[in-house]
Design a protein around this nucleic acid. Structure first.
Length: 476
RNA sequence: GGCCCUGUCGUCUAGUGGUUUAGGAUGUCAGGUUCUCAGCCUGAAGAUCGCGGGUUCGAAUCCCGCCGGGGUCACCA
């Protein structure tokens, strides 16, 4: 059986967003589940759109997600290199020359303005524009100054797509597209065909915008007399409006921004995989290993899926909750609040344990844990805005806090002891938890929300708790 | 305008003629978990399966027509 080889072939014009990464992920999964190779190729044939450094940025993104490639540009390399199209111009010229020699390519004698005039003519007549209707009878010899066009052979096509199923089109969609631009660079339409063939790609997995060009590609494969790979067309990832595909122009985030925000890369992968794919069971969360064994192109959705960041947040929270504490600690290194710099690992681990199930992503860490590391200024509005505490006179609040302090002073600050003391205080002071616990929470954290009170007190420790209650008492 | 793709709860989806009074998840709301936020548990609301015909004892599922959405018709990929 033929070796499975898939590729991801971005144009280095910016960054990778949810849509592009999902395409890469699906291609990577196919390669990994069949012990094949995953190839990274840079399609840098449009020098005007290229963004310096975006190649490195994209590679960094793929690496973060764990989408490693077996062959690719720079230090990775491989037997079919180079893996940057701009370094392969001689190869394209050679293949183009073959087409010229066979009478299947010709020089375009028209200026861009003239072609544009043809196009507008067609548009005015509400007809699709077909260059071949203007095919010159005696084109000049190809000298590298003119664009080189494919001499197409219009005919109907039927083909199978791994995702969309059986597809067909008529001869009216076949046209003489440009192979080599007048600047000497090949077009995508030509270069990717040659490269996929030479790099022995067995599956071309790409997004939907290319579907209309497939018949032309099929025509070119025939003219080149080369075997074509299997084709799989992925639906779009849609933007928030649900109508247009997600694009950099709207609000599509750079995937690396999610790293910045403290998302777990496995969560991004699981979320992306289930955006337009499911295995037919009710499973919602997948490890990378599970995806490798379970993924199937035939179960990829045919319609576009909207990118829902709320769902991503749920998936990410799920992953965070299920991480071993040590693992979570390792991943949280760069997200701690400034005040935590001097804290030791044991203390941080305890703090992390109390907020693990509350985190959606790691950049929430500072706001959730700040009070564990520094004494915050007394905020009177926490009491005055509280629906019950605000109705209690400050003298009474003082009494409650003082009694609590006395009890805490005798505590060993273990969880069972704190719990027992709190229960006794509720009883002896005749207070409801909502009153007493809120008061103690505010006194010790200067926050309206915190982890469970006993956990919070135990982590803060006796000295801190007593001191903060004293400060609070003085302010009442 | 031609061609191609597509259309199930707000969102992601299950579903390929009958076990479906259309299931799950998320999101929303309510109750519970000694207090808050989150989590967890329980429950609720939420889809005339784009619309109209037809086939059939029976259709989200098959056929026809229509409508909506998207893509493409670049010397961009």
């Amino acid at each position: 059986m033929k070796q499975v080889r898939t590729r991801f072939a971005p144009s280095p014009t910016g960054y990778l967003h949810v849509g592009s990464v999902r395409t890469a992920l699906f291609a990577w999964l196919i390669a990994r589940q069949r012990n094949g190779q995953f190839i990274l190729r840079l399609e840098d044939t449009d020098k005007t759109r290229e963004v310096t450094g975006s190649d490195k940025h994209m590679m960094e993104c793929l690496k973060w997600l764990g989408l490693d490639w077996d062959e690719g540009p720079d230090d990775v390399s491989g037997p079919y290199g180079p893996y940057r199209q701009s370094l392969r111009l001689d190869i394209y010229k050679e293949w183009a020359q073959r087409l010229v020699d066979n009478g299947r390519a010709y020089s375009d004698p028209y200026s861009p303005d003239q072609v544009q005039a043809f196009r507008e003519e067609a548009k005015a007549a509400k007809q699709p524009f077909l260059y071949r209707e203007h095919r010159p009878s005696n084109p000049p010899t190809w000298n590298g100054k003119h664009a080189l066009r494919f001499k197409s052979d219009p005919k109907p096509y039927q083909w199978h797509d791994e995702v969309l199923g059986d597809l067909s089109t008529g001869p009216e969609v076949i046209d003489d597209f440009i192979l080599i631009k007048s600047d000497g660079y090949p077009t995508y339409n030509f270069a990717h065909i040659i490269d996929d063939y030479l790099m022995q790609i067995s599956y071309v997995i790409r997004s939907q915008e290319f579907i209309a060009s497939v018949p032309n590609f099929l025509n070119l494969y025939e003219a080149l007399m080369i075997e074509r790979p299997l084709l799989a067309t992925l639906p779009y990832v849609m933007g928030p409006d649900g109508k247009k595909k997600l694009s950099k122009r709207d609000n599509a985030k750079d995937i690396l921004d999610y790293r910045q925000d403290g998302y777990i890369h496995e969560a991004i992968v699981s979320f992306l995989a289930t955006l337009g794919w499911n295995d037919g069971t009710v499973q919602e969360i997948y490890s990378i290993e599970e995806l490798i064994t379970k993924f199937q192109l035939s179960r990829v959705q045919r319609s576009g899926a909207r990118f829902d960041e709320q769902r991503l947040n749920w998936v990410d929270g799920y992953f965070i909750r299920h991480l071993a504490l040590d693992d979570l600690y390792e991943r949280s290194q760069t997200f701690w609040p400034e005040e935590a710099k001097s804290a030791d690992k044991d203390y941080k681990l305890k703090v992390l344990g109390t907020v693990q199930e509350r985190l959606k992503f790691l950049s929430e860490l500072p706001s959730l844990t700040k009070f564990f590391f520094s004494e915050l200024p007394i905020n009177p509005s926490l009491v005055s805005n509280h629906k019950l505490l605000s109705k209690i006179p400050s003298g009474k609040l003082k009494t409650l806090l003082t009694a609590s302090r006395e009890s805490f002073e005798k505590s060993d600050f273990t969880l069972p002891d704190l719990e027992q003391r709190l229960n006794k205080l509720l009883e002896s002071l005749g207070q409801k938890p909502v009153v007493l616990f809120s008061l103690i929470r505010i006194a010790t954290t200067q926050a309206s929300a915190s982890p469970a009170l006993t956990d919070t007190l135990a982590v803060l420790g006796k000295d801190t708790v007593l001191h903060r209650i004293d400060v609070m008492l003085a302010s009442l």
